[in-house]
Computed example of a mutant assay.
Amino acid sequence: MRTVRIRTFTLFSLFLILTIPWLFYVAAHFTVTGTLNLEQRSPGERLIVPISAAVAGLVLAFVLVGGAMRRRLLQPLEQMSAAAREIAGGAWEQQLPLSRIKEIAEVRDSFHVMVKGLQASNQKQAELEAERRFVIAAVAHDLRTPLFALRGYLDGIEQGIANSPEKLEKYLAVCKEKSVQLDRLVEDLFTFTKIEYVEAELPCSRVDLQVILQTTIDSLLPLARQKQLSIMTDFAQGDAAVAGDAHLLERAIANLLDNAIRHTPAHGQIRVQCGKDGDNVTFAIRDAGPGFSAEDLQRAFEPLYRGEQSRNRSTGGAGLGLTIARKIVRRHGGELSIANDAAGGACLSGWIAACYGSN
């Protein structure tokens, strides 16, 4: 649709308002005198006829200009206002009116872009809310299993069923195991919620990813020793600093390492690597487990997904570990991926942009 600027429309309207009365005046004068010479008048001629014609022409000009303004300016603005109210009520598919005035057309186009952005944002928010509700419901369901078991064994201790030191030791060990499961589920839920609703910018500081990796390894060594696993490190020489939240990064690495420990058979080996590739700090955790199935490779990062090797809730957690780890890495501007290692087992690798400044 061809458009004109409002300045051009205004000038044209003024031209009509000035021209039409003049034309009517000249036409009336010609009708009365038979000539276009305005200085020549017939005997007894009065100015009442030309002036009346000029007034009629002025009225006609105002009617024409007013109608044009109504169609091209006021109606599109009124329709746009009504459409805005409909959109505010959730009618995202409401069509905005067209206009031949360029400025109004530009406002319409900008408004259309804004509506599309709001629609996409609203859709994303709805999906996040649905995902949040699903995760909370699923984790709440998973909390029941260790809670019921914990209460059952505590009742057994209270009622004297564990009437020997061996039974009492067994009951206490189970209670401790269930409390650890509860702690993991609650921590997963807290971290998942935190990274979903954390502020747009993370509280970043300069942290050494190698230090975070080593700290996480040290914290999980007792768990690895229970299965007699060895954790080998291969850290490149030099700086491996990144900008980020040290607590969240440690949580992400802990989830990856915990996943490797749970899926590596007894007496197996886990390899942890860290180095630099251009302007990125890279890391990888390789285990000696069965690796990922084809479905796992497609769905491993979905919230609450449990692969065939981790269906058991006693070892598989809530199915949020890899989801949380990837979200944390992505919040730091990096990426996390999974693959099956050529030598066997699974490989969880990722990268985060290196930090060269002092802060």
Rank of each mutant, 00 (worst) to 15 (best):
V4L: 11
I6S: 14
F9A: 14
L16F: 13
A27T: 09
L38M: 12
E39N: 13
G44Q: 06
L58P: 04
L60Y: 01
R70Q: 14
L73E: 03
P76K: 01
L77M: 15
R85S: 10
E86T: 11
L98S: 14
R100E: 10
K102N: 09
V107A: 09
K116H: 08
Q123L: 11
Q125P: 02
A126E: 05
L128A: 13
V135M: 05
V139M: 05
L143P: 03
L143N: 09
R144N: 05
R151L: 14
Y153Q: 13
E158S: 14
K167D: 14
K178P: 02
V180E: 15
L189E: 02
T193D: 10
L202I: 13
T215W: 08
L220P: 00
L220Q: 07
R225K: 09
Q228D: 11
L229C: 07
M232K: 11
M232Q: 12
T233K: 10
F235E: 08
E250Y: 03
R251F: 06
L256I: 15
G278D: 09
V281K: 04
I285Y: 02
R286M: 07
S293Y: 04
D296E: 11
L297H: 09
Q298S: 09
R311W: 12
G317N: 01
G319V: 02
R331W: 09
A342D: 13
C347F: 01
L348C: 04
W351N: 05
N359A: 11
